[in-house]
Design a protein around this nucleic acid. Structure first.
Lengths: 154, 154
DNA sequence: CGTTTTTAGTCGGTGCACTGAACAATACCT
DNA sequence: AGGTATTGTTCAGTGCACCGACTAAAAACG
C-alpha cells in the first residue's frame, strides 16, 4: 500500500502548527512561562477566585494537567491556592501581585508574537483561519459528551 | 489590564485543535499507536532505509523526540534498526512485516477519522484550512534557521 | 597525516496532555 | 439519619516535545 500524504492530514498539520507556535513563543514571549500557563493567568485575571477544575475547563485542560500547571505557577509565586471554606473539596485560585504583573508583561509580548506568527495571512484570511479551526475543534470536542447540547448553559 | 480573548490566539487554537484530534484518534484509530508513530511508519513505507535523523525531519520531530518514538516502535517489533555499514553514526530504519501490516490497517482508519474530523467543513473550506495552516506553520519554521535577522532585539 | 569541525545519536531535565485509580468532601435519596 | 452517588483533587503511568550537554564517527582542513 502506498504511503499517505501527511500534508492533507489535519492532525499532522495541527501538531506542526503547535510546534511552530511553541518555538516562536519561546523566543518572542518567555522561556519561563509557557503558553498554557499564560492561558491560566489570563483566565484568573478575568475571573479571580475560580476553582481548579473550572480553570481547566476554561483553558481546555483536563484535571491532571491543570493540576500540574497550577502547581508550577504556585511554586513560582504567581498564584495563591486556598481551600474553599464553603466546599472543602475545592481550591480557590487567585493571582498574586507578581502573577498579575507577569500577565501584563506577557500580554504585550504575546500580541507582538501573534502579529509575527500570522504575518503570512491577510486580515481576511486570519478571520477565516480562526473560524475554521474553531469550528473543527468545537465539533470534535462536541463528540466527547454526546448527551450535552452545544451551547453550554451557564 | 483586561484579560485577552484566547479565541483569537492562534497558539491556543492550535493546542485545542491538536487535543481534539488526539482524542478522536484514540477512539477511532488506535489506542496503541499514536499519530506521530503512524507518521513515522508512513515515512518508512515511502522511503525504507532512512536514517533516524531524516525520519525526524520528514515528520517534524527533533532528535530527542524521534529517538523515543523509534525506540517504542522498535520495542513493539514494528521496525528494525541497523547500523549503516558505510557510516557508523547512522541507524538505518526499515519496517518489519508487522510494521507494514499495522500501517495498512491504520491508513484505512485514519482516512475514516479525517472524514469525521473535517465533517464541519465543506470541500472548499478544507482546502483553505490546509492551505492556511500550512502557510503559517511553514513561515514560522522558516524563522528558525534564516540568515536573516528577523526581529530587532528591543 | 593529525587536528578541528560537523554530524548522528544518546542522556538528563522540564513541561504538556491523556487515562485510570484512589481519596475525601459534598450532595442526593429514600 | 444512612447509604449511595457525584464532585474536586491527587497520584501513577505512558507518551510527545523541546533544550543543552555529551559521545562517537566521519568529514574538512592544513
Amino acid at each position: 500500500m502506498a504511503a499517505a500524504d501527511l500534508t492533507t492530514h489535519p492532525g499532522h498539520l495541527a501538531r506542526r502548527l503547535q510546534q511552530a507556535h511553541y518555538l516562536l513563543w519561546n523566543t518572542m514571549v518567555s522561556e519561563e512561562i509557557t503558553s498554557p500557563q499564560f492561558a491560566v493567568l489570563n483566565t484568573l485575571v478575568a475571573e479571580p477566585g475560580l476553582d481548579q477544575r473550572t480553570v481547566g475547563e476554561r483553558v481546555g485542560l483536563d484535571r491532571s494537567t491543570i493540576a500540574e500547571v497550577i502547581s508550577r505557577l504556585g511554586r513560582r509565586g504567581l498564584l495563591d491556592k486556598v481551600r474553599d471554606p464553603e466546599d472543602g473539596r475545592r481550591f480557590l485560585l487567585r493571582l498574586t501581585e507578581e502573577g498579575a504583573r507577569t500577565h501584563r508583561k506577557l500580554t504585550v509580548r504575546t500580541a507582538r508574537m501573534n502579529q509575527v506568527f500570522l504575518a503570512p495571512l491577510t486580515a481576511e484570511e486570519r478571520t477565516v483561519f480562526f473560524d475554521l479551526i474553531r469550528r473543527v475543534a468545537d465539533a470534535a470536542e462536541g463528540l466527547r459528551n454526546p448527551g450535552e447540547p452545544l451551547a453550554a448553559p451557564h
